[in-house]
Design a protein around this nucleic acid. Structure first.
Lengths: 299, 299
DNA sequence: CATTTTGCCTGACTTATGTCAGATGAATTC
DNA sequence: GAATTCATCTGACATAAGTCAGGCAAAATG
């Protein structure tokens, strides 16, 4: 794709954006202080509320020193918001959980955050455009924090991706697209031990997916490769494909195949660039018209 | 305009954006710390570098306590970066300026900021889309910090607005638009004491403009009302018009007129809603086809 | 079993930031 | 010209946040 050169005021505009968000983040933080707790303690409480229970994990996530972490935790314990216990498997480790009072306090922080988010949207004339802009920037900034996660293809994140994937296929393929026609595999074929379904998560938002569907014909198929428009060009499709290949190797699969459509040139270019070779039609699905194969090195 | 309802995951997406930018701001701040100075001192240095010299003004801008401000300033003085002196008019006040060493240090911070901004742009596949998203979000977040400023219509900010204004007219008007044809007034007519040119500034970016052009026919004309696409729907056009009216009253002008084109329905709706009455054609400019007038209360 | 490693805790310390009550000296007001 | 107001400075505190050196007990390693 031809990338237009950035306009002369580009750097000034980015810096203006930086100033604006620095202020917004400051406002966000001070609003958290209204609950009478220092920011560090509030962050720990929120990490626990999000389901993180392993102390070391929380420390790594928040980037805290073990001494500081210990003290913050003790403060929350003194407030009666959290309780700690030794890990059942390894009693050097400690696990933390919210007490009922802590859960209530966490809910209060969540309410605050939600209200702030809703407030930003409510005062804007075009929330859809604002959200799209936020997704784009969030994806760009959170690029190296985007993680691949194996999950159930029927999970909410997976369904969000698949829905967007089908909507896009319908818009881009010349003939109208009907999901039920395209031989839709059962979810089990895309879960261990037959296959896998991988979602790219960025700060809680699913940005892309790929399915590895096991067959009983000596190969597995790559299906449903999709990347959110806001995250395109960031190399996510390649990461997803790498993840799918690694999953296949982990399952002892030696041969991969996929079918695609010539109306999706970006996808085809990616396959060609990553070691796939074009082969003859291997199924009678009416929609695909290009077919690829890749042999994997044994794990 | 019909506004589509926000999607069900809207709040989650805003919160994801918040998380992403909170991290980005943190990274930004820690990078400033690499110059071995606490953030507070760096902020004061930057405020001075931006041309603020009055101590009280800097304190208000940064929201600092007078004691803290004093100490930070003393630290910068000890480093040899700034020098203070009593104000010439009022020797209770103090004015600050950068020493050569301070100017060099400030330039270094600027270089850092520019490099970071350029870095974000450079790694993105579509810098134009990223900038548009940043402008949109910056405008939404900086909404209540957008200020109206009277300036020379030949200043860089004004020219940026006017250029965008003409480009848009060319795109929206049915016949091709040529600036030189539309009787282009001299800049003097849009400056005191004849008129005014007002620019809406948001964190250093010009988001809109309006010109008040004095004539010798007993009225002044509103010209070149423009709002950046990223800032539309936020009520900026109305604020600019209010500003122009206030400027007119300040200049003792009692009658305002304007011409516009029926291809710009948003503008026409605004005029109707703010006390303007449609009148007969009052000039022979070929482009406009709708004409308005408004009588002002005497200041 | 002895040694080392690991995960967490504690105490002692530092730095950054913020707050508050005067002190100081220069305008301003009466 | 005395009293008041104002802008800034100083000293005395307070709190948040972070660092570092050990300490302790459980787990892993030999």
């Amino acid at each position: 794709m031809p990338v237009p050169p950035p306009p002369p005021d580009a750097v000034a505009r980015v810096r203006r954006f930086n100033r604006a968000i620095t202020r917004a983040v400051g406002a966000l933080n001070t609003s958290f202080l209204d609950r009478g707790r220092p920011l560090g303690a509030a962050r720990v409480l929120n990490a626990i509320g999000q389901g993180r229970s392993d102390l070391g994990e929380i420390r790594a996530y928040l980037g805290l020193d073990s001494g500081l972490m210990s003290r913050l935790l003790r403060g929350l314990e003194a407030e009666g918001l959290v309780a700690t216990a030794a890990d059942a498997q390894d009693s050097r480790r400690r696990v933390v959980h919210l007490t009922p009072a802590g859960a209530a306090e966490f809910a209060e922080y969540e309410r605050l955050s939600d209200a702030q988010a809703a407030g930003i949207l409510a005062t804007h004339p075009d929330p859809g455009a604002l959200l799209a802009a936020m997704d784009l920037i969030g994806s760009a900034l959170g690029r190296d924090r985007t993680t691949l996660e194996v999950c159930d293809p029927r999970s909410p994140e997976a369904l969000r991706c698949l829905q967007a994937y089908y909507a896009e296929l319908a818009a881009r393929l010349p003939h109208s697209f009907d999901v039920s026609l395209s031989c839709d595999p059962q979810a089990e074929a895309m879960m261990a031990p037959h296959g896998a379904f991988i979602v790219a998560m960025s700060d809680g938002l699913a940005l892309g997916c790929v399915g590895l569907k096991g067959t009983d014909a000596g190969y597995a198929e790559i299906k449903r490769l999709w990347v959110a428009p806001a995250a395109r060009g960031l190399g996510l499709a390649r990461r997803l494909m790498d993840g799918a290949e690694a999953a296949a190797q982990g399952l002892g699969i030696a041969l991969l195949r996929l079918d695609t459509n010539s109306a999706l040139p970006e996808a085809i270019a990616l396959y060609r660039a990553t070691g796939w070779t074009e082969i003859a039609r291997f199924n009678d699905d009416p929609y695909p018209d290009v077919f690829f194969e890749k042999r994997l090195a044994q794990a």
